[in-house]
Write a protein that binds this DNA or RNA. Structure first.
Lengths: 342, 342
DNA sequence: GTGAAAGCGCTAACAG
DNA sequence: CTGTTAGCGCTTTCAC
């Protein structure tokens, strides 16, 4: 364990190369206004000393760190993992890193986590923040530049949303077409905007199909909540259940299996998101596909534009809230089928 | 879009409160050597101005950022997601944030990614780095403090590994006990240390059971590679296949299903890792459980100790390579069964 | 108890 | 083309 006396800095390189700090800085930043010979000498010195500029000092001087933050409600959820991955990959391509902040579905933590993540980087993406509209609105100005995923905020920031209403409607219509008339929706967190959108979609659906009975059961976001809802679901006598997301659907599937309720023979189940695993459950899950990775990549794209405003209308577009809503696509697999006795 | 003239800093608070910068700093850091009245005035000013110390300036002055980096080979892999999550949660509990670096299985990128992540924070955890031993050894000193997951390095850093050899052996023994004598191993990346350990375990297994034929097929780490291996696997006439990990096993499962090969009727399949979804495939996957989250949490624990050396023997323990090897546990589910015709 | 000043490591005018 | 100097925003001796 050889203890390095002190981290070597730009000054060490400067003195070793017999030049000033400024020159070293110039060389390290690829400035072409440096004599070839000197530059070579500096590079050699840097090499010898194994010198790498300290990003902190650099960031402080430049006023930017080429780092962005991302706030997610729950890193355990594959949906957010996919978005994170999209953001991370896209940002990396442009030389940016990402700092993660997981609020563990605790909306009261979001404020401080988001602020911190923002202050340590050049921007932030808020993924499905659970905080109230008022809080978000108050926080927004201090977070700029930022982009919002699964949440809207008039004019404050670029917004990437998913057409959850349409997606759940499509799922419900699919069940309807299979003859189901008694449905259950296992709802997500009240604080989730995407859950509200699903509820809107279902409202429209029921309005268009008065003969359908739709019961809403409090649910959750995880396997466990789906698994735990089995008895309540069975008690409703429904033949089709729309789960808040794939995880809940999978938990339910597993619970139904334990109760020896056959899917889709006796009951049809749908998920939402189409996380990678949905294709591998038994039976494979009928769900609504959300372009998760693309959501993340687009989020970075927007942030990138704000960070480096380029010539064209981008300024106009992204300066205000350039909202994009991603469509979902119905993915019919084995977990849904005709209503029993049809 | 009201543009803030300039981010408000400590100086603004100081002048507003009519004190010096030093005093503000003291108050913000909870120093008790400040007059109660003054302190209150400062706090009020900070509140009014919505002042929050700039972490960058702070970090530069203090020489630490309360941030750590983590390098993973592939953020798309649930195995690494689980570890990341463990690290992130544990670090967050101690007030630390994590910066992620995804090398996309490109070992040539690891060097620069790891260095950067390290320099931006106070330490780094390298998760299953793919780089060569020589490279790792050369890099290690510049990365301290760091902790290694799924990789060993004599004396250089705390090391957290999994007993992959024993795990795969247990899986093979399980198949053996079910009567299987013709097995296939779908191997992982050559550069993966955990893959080498699996191979060692299998070597021991075949040595103990000369009557077993074990064929090794080049595989991969993903669904796709498992799915793509179906024909090669079938061509071997094997009755049991050990996949590198759960993902590969799931891909294989899906491919076998398409070929109408029944599992476990005609073929038994095992995974490795026991990612959350393994319990939900059809049939559910027999696998070896790896304590993924704990691996991440322990990684943070170690790093934390290095960052804040506490009284006791910890120095002795963690200063050198305090290696911990986590055992796996055999998880028998539906994807394995008696050899056909048994 | 509080302020002045030096410094963390680097970049960016501004002179020469 | 290169060196000097002044910060970036904060913490911390060291005097007062």
């Amino acid at each position: 364990m050889t203890k390095q006396p002190r981290r070597i800095g730009i000054a060490d390189v400067a003195s070793r190369a017999g030049v000033s700090l400024a020159t070293v800085s110039r060389v390290m930043n690829g400035s072409f206004t440096v004599d070839r010979g000197i530059a070579a000498r500096v590079r050699a010195a840097a090499e010898d000393l194994q010198y790498h500029p300290n990003p902190l000092g650099r960031s402080l001087a430049l006023g930017k760190s080429e780092t962005i933050g991302i706030l997610v409600p729950d890193l355990a959820n594959p949906m957010f993992q996919a978005v994170l991955r999209g953001v991370s990959m896209a940002a990396a391509r442009d030389g940016y890193r990402v700092l993660i902040a997981d609020s563990s579905e605790t909306s009261s933590e979001e404020h401080v986590l988001a602020s911190d993540a923002r202050r340590r980087g050049d921007g932030v993406v808020l993924c499905a923040p659970r905080m109230s509209d008022e809080e978000l609105e108050a926080l927004a100005p201090t977070l700029q530049p930022m982009v919002l995923i699964n949440r809207t905020l008039s004019g404050a920031a670029p917004t990437l949303t998913v057409d959850y209403a349409d997606g759940i409607r499509a799922l419900a219509e699919h069940l309807f077409a299979q003859g189901h008339r008694k449905l259950v929706f296992l709802s997500g967190p009240e604080s989730s905007a995407s859950n509200r959108l699903r509820l809107q979609g279902l409202e429209q659906f029921t309005a268009e199909h008065p003969e359908v009975s739709l019961q809403i059961l409090p649910g959750g976001v995880s396997f466990a909540s789906g698994h735990g809802a089995v008895h309540d679901v069975l008690a409703t006598q429904a033949t089709g259940v729309l789960a808040f997301n794939d995880l809940v659907a999978m938990g339910l599937l597993s619970g139904l299996h334990e109760q020896e309720v056959s899917v889709p023979g006796e009951m049809s189940v749908t998920g939402f998101d189409d996380i990678e695993f949905s294709a591998y459950t038994s039976p494979p899950l009928t769900t609504a596909t959300v372009p998760l990775n693309e959501l993340g990549e687009q989020a970075w794209q927007r942030l990138h534009e704000m960070l480096h405003p380029s010539a064209e209308g981008t300024a106009v577009e992204s300066g205000a809230a350039a909202g994009t809503v991603f469509p979902t696509t119905l993915q019919v697999r084995g977990s849904t089928g005709p209503v029993p006795g049809a």
